[in-house]
């Protein structure tokens, strides 16, 4: 199954998920996306920028310092809850340059989404 089909399949499992984007956060590029309506490239780019900041950027560094891990393990998951939508950003544990960006409506079951998305993300790499 191609990556695009995997994203579609994951989004069908979680209808509250409006946009899914698979990104390379080392280069800041969205490699593949699935959405309930066509997303402008600018929107996907801004989504990727948030993922980079939360998982690899200044925000991640500040919080990682708070965890005070000697191995500087980094941030692997970010959740942003706003009134109208919820963003979930997951970094692959297999390849830390890969990340999945999810934008959902507030009705989403977050834990189920995170678990499902995490399982898929760690299998995604290699066939975009």
């Amino acid at each position: 199954m191609k990556l695009a089909e995997k994203l579609d399949q994951l989004r069908q499992k979680f209808p509250e998920c409006q946009t899914l984007a698979f990104a390379d956060i080392s280069t800041g590029m969205v490699l593949c996306s699935s959405a309930d309506k066509n997303s402008r490239q600018e929107y996907l780019d801004s989504l990727c920028d948030v993922a980079v900041d939360m998982l690899n950027g200044d925000s991640a560094k500040r919080v990682n310092d708070a965890f005070a891990r000697e191995d500087d393990a980094g941030i692997y998951q970010a959740i942003i809850i706003e009134t109208a939508e919820i963003g979930v950003f997951l970094k692959s544990t297999n390849n830390p340059s890969e990340a999945l960006c999810c934008v959902c409506t507030p009705g989403i079951e977050l834990e189920a989404l995170i678990q499902g998305a995490r399982e898929n993300l760690d299998e995604f790499g290699g066939d975009p």
């Binding site: 990682n64 941030i75 970010a78 959740i79 942003i80 809850i81």
Partner: peptide
Amino acid sequence: SEPNCIILSEHPANGRSL
């Protein structure tokens, strides 16, 4: 000023969140 909540978590094997 709009209410929001951000949660950042480290590697699943370590298990702390802020």
